[in-house]
Design a protein around this nucleic acid. Structure first.
Length: 297
DNA sequence: AAGTGAACCTGAAGGC
DNA sequence: TGCCTTCAGGTTCACT
């Protein structure tokens, strides 16, 4: 499912149920996702207060009171559901009784019950059919998983100068380079395709062409930086993109998928004014690329 | 170094 | 109805 805008949407959905709340109880229903769960995972979380829910690229960061951080990645199919617990209709008693009456859905792997200082309780469920996601504790900081990440696409650092700097002299195709989290962290297949279309650049173009011979930004750098920032911001505002089963944490759909220009549009007319091209699907390093061969050069 | 393909895993969709 | 193939929002690893 999730690229940066979807993960940010999840973060915003988790925040009201987690930030400032205490973890009352937790159930982990299998030994591993993509990686084994951390040793004594429940013991280290139950009773802890969550200070805030952060995000770095596609990683969620649960900053705990006890100076530990939980790192969560949603992989391809991970999602969270959050629901307020109404104790009138679902009396809790001792909280461990709560899960006994919970109806698990298929692929629900982790469940948490949190309680805000005001008393409101929440049930938070992690579901992940393909299990490419994971949950880790950040024992070493920064966690090795986060050390190699490049700049955030929405931060102030992503501009024409930075693109020309990090890509100068390289011959990698733009498509592959933009998917590489070591350069820009958070883009995935959808938003790379969309950003390239918006900037009129071919997915085959060598990234080195974003820099001139003396290392300054070429005329292609600023349009790409602007397109990346715009498409990510707009997608976040739209609550992400809902393909297949992706939902926001409250069950609502994101709606950015209605604004795709090229992603999954093979055979359709390019919507750029006066272009007249037909969107093509090709494969680059094992991933689908959707682009307009006419206006993306 | 850079590029490709496979691997991890399940489910949906399409062809026959 | 079922069976088979292909594909999917990510990342890492093994190979040329």
């Amino acid at each position: 499912m999730p690229e940066l805008p979807e993960v940010e949407t999840v973060r915003r959905g988790l925040a009201p149920a987690m930030e400032g709340a205490t973890i009352l109880d937790m159930v982990v229903r299998r030994a591993n996702l993509r990686f084994p769960f951390p040793p004594r995972f429940q013991d280290r979380l139950i009773g802890q207060k969550i200070l805030d829910v952060g995000r770095r690229a596609k990683y969620l960061l649960w900053h705990l009171d006890g100076d530990e951080t939980v790192i969560v990645h949603l992989g391809m199919s991970g999602s969270f559901r959050v629901s307020a617990i109404n104790e009138r209709t679902k009396p809790l008693g001792a909280h461990q009784h709560y899960f006994a009456q919970t109806a698990y859905e298929k692929h629900d792997h982790v469940m948490l019950v949190t309680k805000q200082p005001g008393g409101q309780k929440f049930e938070i469920t992690y579901n992940d059919p393909r299990r490419f996601g994971f949950m880790l504790m950040e024992d070493v900081r920064p966690h090795p998983m986060l050390q190699k990440l490049g700049v955030e696409p929405t931060g102030n650092r992503l501009d024409a100068a930075l693109l020309s700097e990090i890509f100068a002299g390289k011959s990698t195709p733009l498509k592959a380079a933009l998917l590489d989290q070591r350069y820009i962290a958070g883009l995935g297949n959808i938003y790379v395709c969309e950003a390239l279309w918006r900037s009129g650049l071919s997915p085959f173009r060598a990234v080195g062409s974003l820099a001139t011979k003396n290392g300054k930004p070429s005329r292609y750098a600023a349009p790409l930086a602007d397109a990346i920032r715009a498409v990510i911001s707009e997608a976040i505002d739209a609550g992400g993109s809902s393909l297949q089963d992706h939902r926001q944490t409250d069950g609502k759909m994101g709606y950015f998928q209605h604004r795709f220009a090229v992603y999954d549009k093979a055979g359709q007319a390019c919507i750029k004014q006066g272009c007249g091209g037909i969107i093509e699907r090709i494969v680059q390093s094992g991933r689908s690329t959707f682009y307009c061969p006419r206006c993306q050069r």
